[in-house]
Simulated scan of single mutants.
Amino acid sequence: MTPSGQKTTMSDLPKVRRLEAVGFRAWPAASVQYDGSWLCRLTAGHPSRRLNSVNPLDPSDTRDIDIRLEKAAKRFADYGRPLLVRQTPLTPEKLVAFMDEAGWANVGRTIVMMVDLADLLRDEGLDHLPSRDVGRFVDARIRVAGDDPGLKPGLTEIINAIKPEAGLFIFEEPDFGPTAVTIAVQDNDLAGILQLGVAQERRGRGLGTAILHASLRWAKLKGARHAWVQVEADNAAALALYRRAGFRDVYEYSYRGPHAA
């Protein structure tokens, strides 16, 4: 079952597995360890849940659930992080039942979406080229999002660790500075869209749509056939942006923890 209760069929699981794999490559954690098929991702330099969670990848891997969660909790505590399990359609039902019975909190819900670039984009040239300056992009992202400047070293480390080709897009105005940013990560025939943001003072002017399409055109020219994105379910503006662009829901996930995080 997905976190929203919608059934994911066995025929959907290969697509889920592939999107999970490209998602991990697109936004790499600093520390990656496996316990069986449970992928433990931890990142001291950034508090993102996606970078600090246990990710079960095999619905049949249900051995020693309580012992393995205790080991994971110790590992997370060493990083000063709360234990979080990322519950996807790949999470074993026995693990979900264990968390339910123990009263684990449900911390946020995210929707994974995809679009066919052949349906979305005409074959046309690039109107915006990506930047190669990671430091400049990170500064722009922090300013556009209003994030804590203390996150700069961690965010820089994450972006530098992305192995597939990444396009860093920045829109700017001379008297204002950065107005919108996004990252397109092109991984074979799939492209992930990450970190899209528009400065609060410039919202409602179509900048989100413009920078999204600029990054998707770049990814398509690089060979991507489909694009994916992960959007928090309570972010109505972002969901509307992607759905207007033709993105459709594929599956959902949520974070579960023994304590609210």
Rank of each mutant, 00 (worst) to 15 (best):
V85S: 05
I211Y: 07
G204I: 05
G23S: 14
S48P: 01
G146V: 03
L212I: 04
H226E: 12
A140D: 03
P14C: 09
I170M: 10
D187N: 13
T43Q: 07
R63A: 12
S31K: 10
T209Y: 06
T182Q: 07
S131H: 12
G197D: 07
R132N: 13
L190T: 14
E232G: 09
A72F: 13
T91E: 03
V185K: 11
V134Q: 05
W218I: 02
A72L: 11
P153G: 14
L42C: 11
W218V: 00
T2S: 14
P59L: 03
L126A: 15
R75G: 02
P47M: 10
D100F: 00
T91K: 06
Y253F: 15
S60Y: 00
G146Y: 01
P153Y: 14
M1L: 12
W38N: 10
A210L: 12
E70R: 11
A260L: 09
E101P: 00
L207N: 07
G192K: 04
D175T: 10
L151D: 11
S131Y: 11
F24V: 15
V96K: 11
L207W: 06
A145N: 08
D61L: 09
P14L: 10
G45V: 06
H213S: 00
S48H: 08
D148V: 06
H213L: 15
Y242F: 15
V112Y: 02
L126W: 10
W38P: 07
A26N: 13
P174M: 00
P130A: 14
H128M: 14
E172Q: 01
V115I: 13
D123Y: 01
W38T: 08
L216G: 02
S11D: 15
W228F: 15
L239Y: 05
V54S: 05
F137G: 04
